[in-house]
Design a protein around this nucleic acid. Sequence first.
DNA 1: AATCAAACTGAAAACGTTTTCATCTCGATA
DNA 2: TATCGAGATGAAAACGTTTTCAGTTTGATT
Lengths: 333, 333
Amino acid sequence: MDKQTVTIYDVAREADVSMATVSRVVNGNPNVKPATRKKVLDVIERLDYRPNAVARGLASKKTTTVGVIIPDVTNIYFSALARGIDDIAMMYKYNIILTNSDENGRKEVQVLNTLMAKQVDGIVFMGNDISEELRKEFDRAKTPIVLAGCVDEQGVMPSVNIDYAAAVEEAVKNLIDHGNQRVAFISGSLDYPINRDYRLKGYKQALKKAGIRYDDKLVFETDYSYKAGQLLQPALQSVNATAAIIGDDELAAGVMNGVTDAGLKVPDDFEIITSNDTKLTEMVRPKMSSITQPLYDIGAVAMRLLTKLMSSETVDDKTVLLPYGLMKRASTH
Amino acid sequence: MDKQTVTIYDVAREADVSMATVSRVVNGNPNVKPATRKKVLDVIERLDYRPNAVARGLASKKTTTVGVIIPDVTNIYFSALARGIDDIAMMYKYNIILTNSDENGRKEVQVLNTLMAKQVDGIVFMGNDISEELRKEFDRAKTPIVLAGCVDEQGVMPSVNIDYAAAVEEAVKNLIDHGNQRVAFISGSLDYPINRDYRLKGYKQALKKAGIRYDDKLVFETDYSYKAGQLLQPALQSVNATAAIIGDDELAAGVMNGVTDAGLKVPDDFEIITSNDTKLTEMVRPKMSSITQPLYDIGAVAMRLLTKLMSSETVDDKTVLLPYGLMKRASTH
DNA sequence: AATCAAACTGAAAACGTTTTCATCTCGATA
DNA sequence: TATCGAGATGAAAACGTTTTCAGTTTGATT
């Protein structure tokens, strides 16, 4: 039944050397006489020997596998990060164990524990919030962890982000400069620090600088879904909003279509700026103006940072901010 | 430096039992006296013992990890499948090693080998084509493999799909019934069996039944990208196509926007039916009519099938076809 | 009290590597 | 020629589990 699997011992026997030597040639250790190396290599070829990574992991205490916790692969924003992570991981010979958390704290903790049990060499965490229990688990983990697209309010964990506050402030200023006095702020839960402490803060800052009074009726907390955005239209109209800064592209697409379907013209009657610059922004009509962030790079840089942490390299700055921008498309003037 | 990790041996010593007994309680083996079980459990709790999955994998020859090869997580179609796969995997206590292949044959083979080296218990493969080398690797793999959203022209590998030919035929019939005599067929490479042997076949079948001559000028081979679709507009116009069946939603969105941006009205001047019914179909305006397929379920069923294969259960039918449908939205009459 | 099967338990051998020492070989140096 | 050190090699001990097999208890039965 079980394929007779050829082991390092078989190779050693056939090549008439010790396991240690075979191990050396397999791992590219230079301390092997060229003739011996060739002999071993030939046997490996002949027997079609493939090192067993599990045994290797046990002996070396390194699995060359990293865990990735993602809210939902299906979300175009996170999948873009995931792609960056995987590419860099592959470049450094790591593999990715990918698990969806649905932002569910309990699931996150459980998933984290599974990953630790599997002895991953490191973890990249994506999510909007770090619950108390999760933070506790993070703390006791001996494994390096870096956050991607996820702020640590306590600023202690390695992370890769953009300056959300500044970006939102700039976007809102832009909207105000176009004459909008009533700009709606639409995001996911304000329980998430990224929304409460960064985006909303940038929003308020822009209002303040423009001398506009903050009106919490203009703040909409919802979930990050297309549907939720679509349903927001009546509420937006009832508070006389003429523009919105929105925290997620799918959500923004929903808002825009909701507004449009209600007979309003974007951007003439209602201007929109979204936040993630996923490819969705170019697929809808009108195309959506957006804060730009280097999605792929956030993932890539996070993974690169993790590789450094995993090999105990000293890292200059553990909390990196990547540049953002503002891309004007057809949903604003 | 290295956290003193507590092992099964520590637990055995503290609880004054053998490793075997500890192993039994950890694995829920019923042959343990309740008193002993409690004693062990208490020690486990006290020492915060976590079984090492790598050691476990080596000893038991099971890793409770499956490999998933995906062309690109960023593609909304595949990520939907991936989500189904991961959910079912988690339900059965498996984890997913996710790797992007970019449909690159060499990379696919390499990735497959890494996965085998990591001793995954099974593999789910997504992709449009199975190259010869890849098939060879599949054959020599002792590990069960199932294809998701990927046809095996030789019909020998376990797979989960819909009946692409029938679905396309129905869609094209629909278009023809609306009076379109010149329906374009737009897909990815015709080197892919799924396009050449299924979708195109359905297209031809529909034409034939309607008594329309097949014109290969109406067949467009391109890559699955939004951009590619957008650029197709002039070509479509030059062959007087008045409708199109399109093999991918992003591609379809590109075509639709290209056509629209050129001043034509969808569906009045040009009707479109796309193939994957991803959420993108509802986000664009007009919303796109689409062949519907149970994306999540394709992944979920594939993973479920894999669990059966992994536990050597007998499987009734290894090539399963899930039901499809036709969802009429605003891009057709 | 003797017997027996069923329920528990432990010793030790895998599992397939890496890694640490110790040893051995050999050419170069004094 | 004796000595030395670097380069090659091998023996065997980890690594942390599961699993087999042989025992040992236990409680009921006669």
